[in-house]
């Protein structure tokens, strides 16, 4: 099903500070909860988020069980050249999702 919502400005001036917003669909089950029958609900979270710009890593975050469902990660970077942002989320049970967004810098 639908996974990521990415908000990257399409255009920016060289040297401008830009905000990047990412929202990923995920239940972020903590692994600490029990069902009504007393069975542990196994952990199912995103463990890692990475952003690369033209192949070079510019941002990385490790995620933990205390982070709410549908993690919203936002950060800033400086627009130096046109190119492509590649986002990657990795998690439990073989979860991987990717997304990308292009920016043109004038």
């Amino acid at each position: 099903m639908a996974s990521a919502l990415i908000n990257v400005p399409k255009k920016a001036k060289r040297g401008e500070i830009i905000e990047i917003k990412t929202l990923m669909s995920h239940i972020m089950e903590t692994g600490y909860r029990h069902t009504a029958a007393g069975q542990l609900v196994p952990r199912d979270i995103i463990t890692s988020f990475t952003c690369r710009f033209n192949g070079a890593e510019i941002f990385r975050a490790d995620l933990f069980p205390a982070i709410a469902a549908n993690p919203f990660v936002t950060f800033f970077t400086i627009a130096n050249e046109s190119g492509k942002f590649d986002f990657e989320w990795i998690g439990d049970n073989g979860f991987t999702e990717t997304a990308s967004a292009a920016i043109s810098v004038e």
């Binding site: 996974s3 908000n7 929202l23 669909s25 936002t74």
Partner: peptide
Amino acid sequence: DDTANPGML
């Protein structure tokens, strides 16, 4: 913000 609103997923 539609890119921050998880309902948009």
